[in-house]
């Protein structure tokens, strides 16, 4: 049995109790505004309060990867209790976090004692890769088995979101199509997916209830579900509506969560999202 631990970044949205249960090291990303830089660690940035003030922050906050030094601290601390570390992060195509953690790990860990994985996605679609990885690690203690499981989970996991407004994605500037003209005159509530490091526009919808219905349809395409997580950016009613629509296919360990500010800067307030893993990865 190899003692295996996990390091990820704060875009993973894993609830605190599970982070503690699996001793997961979480490196915070940063949100910059008003000339200051805040760690997305649940202490410097409080979720509910942040979404309430977000629309009035001008210019819009930006997000940034953590410093390599901070990443080194978290990695070192997690490694103290382990023989091998899996490092799963937000996609390198969207963020500098992957590279920062890679640099930090190379600096402080012995060669061969860690595995870097670009999850290709964020929020609980990343979170599920970490949590299932942790479950498999506890069962097998085998680095190759964990790696294999994560790769299969990665194929079967999806993240869908219904944005209440396109405004923040557009101003955030990380997504090319959002900057295009669509949605600049009319209010649009886009349905997006985050997959292989790309934020895709699946549909443009004008009313939020129809957008949530569409989210439920998209989640259903992956049933039977192994894992389900429903998140929101200060929109508990929207999350509840989605939960009701998916009640019949929700696994017992379904997670309801509040989306972390680093993602909220880009999604804007009001977002409802769903992270699913299809059961088929176990076959």
């Amino acid at each position: 049995m190899t003692k295996i631990r996990f390091v990820t970044d704060s875009t993973c949205d894993i609830p605190t109790d599970l982070i503690e249960k699996w001793h997961i090291g979480v490196v915070p990303a940063f949100v910059n505004y008003g000339g200051e830089s805040y760690a997305d660690d649940g202490i410097e940035l409080i979720r509910a309060g942040f979404y309430e003030t977000l629309p009035s922050i001008d210019p819009l906050p930006t997000t940034a990867a953590p410093s390599p030094a901070l990443a080194e601290q978290v990695i070192k601390a997690t490694f103290e209790d382990a023989e091998h570390i899996f490092i799963l992060t937000a996609p390198a195509k969207l963020s500098g976090i992957y590279n920062t953690l890679r640099l930090a790990a190379t600096e402080v860990l012995p060669k061969g004692s860690f595995t870097m994985i670009d999850s290709g996605t964020v929020s609980m679609a990343l979170g599920w890769q970490v949590l299932i990885g942790a479950e498999v690690a506890a069962e097998t203690g085998d680095v190759a088995a964990v790696k294999n499981a994560i790769e299969r989970v990665r194929e079967e996991s999806r993240l869908y979101g219904a944005l209440a407004t396109l405004e923040f994605l557009r101003r955030g500037g990380r997504v090319g199509w959002a900057s295009a003209s669509l949605g600049s005159l009319l209010r649009i509530k886009p349905i997006i997916s985050v997959e292989d490091g790309e934020v895709n526009s699946l549909e443009r919808i004008r009313t939020f209830s129809r957008a949530v219905n569409r989210l439920a349809e998209l989640a259903r395409q992956h049933a039977p579900l192994d894992k389900l997580a429903i998140g929101h950016g200060n929109n508990p009613e929207g999350a509840q509506q989605l939960q009701d629509l998916l009640a019949d296919i929700a696994p017992p360990d379904t997670i309801l969560f509040s989306i972390t500010p680093v993602i909220g800067v880009h999604s804007g307030p009001g977002v409802v999202g769903v992270g699913v893993v299809g059961k088929s990865w176990r076959q």
Partner: peptide, 14 residues
């Protein structure tokens, strides 16, 4: 610089 590095270019600068 290493402590304060932010973003891709910031990391490279550090």
């Amino acid at each position: 610089a290493l402590m304060g590095a932010r973003g891709n270019s910031g990391v490279i600068l550090s």
